[in-house]
């Protein structure tokens, strides 16, 4: 059976590439620290030696619109074009062509149907920055085949937080049952508190630093009970009108299971807080050493990060 070697859950910040490649005189003060943290995080994936990436994201009205918006969708192609014109325009993200893995896409799709998730599917999916941002940060060579999974965190009505957790659990079961000797890593991105188009956007910090610190603790301790008790669509809206992307991080925790994370880092930026989290479901010495080495270099931790220590405005 396939081995799930790593689960990565992170925020996706579309301005990372622009911020860290800008000429020195235009660079934001945190650009170098941001880059160091991302490169350290990348090592936690490299150590897992993946052959295939199952990638979770959400189409931000790039391909899909309100005439036909899929709640959960899987791509089933041999190749995927990526990056739309308006993402190049706004974020400076380049175009990519990623390889797909049709065999795992098919196995995943059937498995999801069998598990009670009636997925939409696409044979002409173009990938947007929710999946390209983590390619840029943790696999910039873009040299591995991907199985893209999209969720609706964006166009209400949305599925419940519990549904995202359950979907993560189902994806885990299917990866574990995949008849292959390949190593699979699951990478998903979402948001902590985030505001777009409203009065709290582009502030000095994310719109709700207290939620961010609490959310990192919940995720890094695998505490799904606390999340399901405290996180609702309404509570997320109260933390910032685009905070619902947090549900994709809940999904990733569902793939990892109710376990402590093996690597946790964060960075408070203007507009939003970055979070970088990795679980190793089948941890070996090489992975543990990579996580420890990365953490030592950038002030990350190799276990849970608690809200009191992270600080509300750290």
């Amino acid at each position: 059976m396939a081995e799930l070697t790593a689960v990565l859950a992170s925020t996706h910040h579309p301005f990372y590439l622009k911020a860290t490649t800008a000429p020195a005189e235009e660079r934001m003060p945190q650009a170098d620290e941001w880059k160091r943290k991302v490169e350290a995080y990348r090592e936690t994936l490299t150590a897992a030696e993946p052959d295939i990436l199952v990638m979770v994201g959400a189409d931000h009205f790039h391909q899909f619109f309100l005439d036909n918006y899929p709640t959960f969708m899987i791509g089933k192609q041999q190749k995927y074009d990526a990056t739309f014109y308006n993402e190049e325009r706004e974020f400076g993200i380049p175009k990519y062509v990623l390889d797909g893995d049709v065999d795992l896409s098919n196995f995943m799709h059937q498995g999801l149907l069998d598990e009670g998730f009636d997925f939409s599917f696409s044979h002409e999916l173009k990938i947007d920055h929710s999946i390209i941002c983590p390619i840029i940060t943790v696999r910039p060579d873009a040299d591995l085949p991907v199985v893209p999974i999209y969720t609706n965190i964006f166009a209400p009505p949305l599925p419940s937080p519990k549904r995202f957790w359950d979907l993560g659990r189902a994806i885990r079961k299917i990866i574990d049952a995949y008849p292959s000797d390949k190593k699979v890593a699951a990478i998903g991105t979402g948001h902590l508190s985030l505001e777009l188009g409203g009065p709290l956007m582009f502030g000095e910090h994310g719109p709700d630093p207290e939620f961010d610190a609490q959310a990192i603790e919940w995720l890094s301790t695998g505490n799904i009970e606390a999340i399901l008790e405290n996180v609702t669509h309404e509570s997320m809206a109260g933390s910032g009108n685009a905070t619902h992307g947090f549900m994709d991080l809940i999904l990733m925790m569902g793939i990892a299971g109710p376990e402590n994370a093996d690597y946790v880092d964060q960075l408070d930026l203007y507009h939003t807080r970055e979070m970088f989290m990795t679980w190793y479901p089948n941890k070996n010495d090489k992975m543990a050493e990579a996580a420890a080495r990365s953490a030592a270099g950038v002030g990350a931790v190799t276990g849970p990060m608690y809200a009191a220590k992270a600080g509300a405005t750290a």
């Binding site: 931000h60 009205f61 309100l66 325009r89 706004e90 166009a155 188009g197 956007m201 685009a242």
Partner: peptide
């Protein structure tokens, strides 16, 4: 109206 649509466009 959906904030993501007019935010992205008007920034552009």
């Amino acid at each position: 109206a959906h904030f993501f649509l007019y935010l992205t466009l008007f920034i552009g």
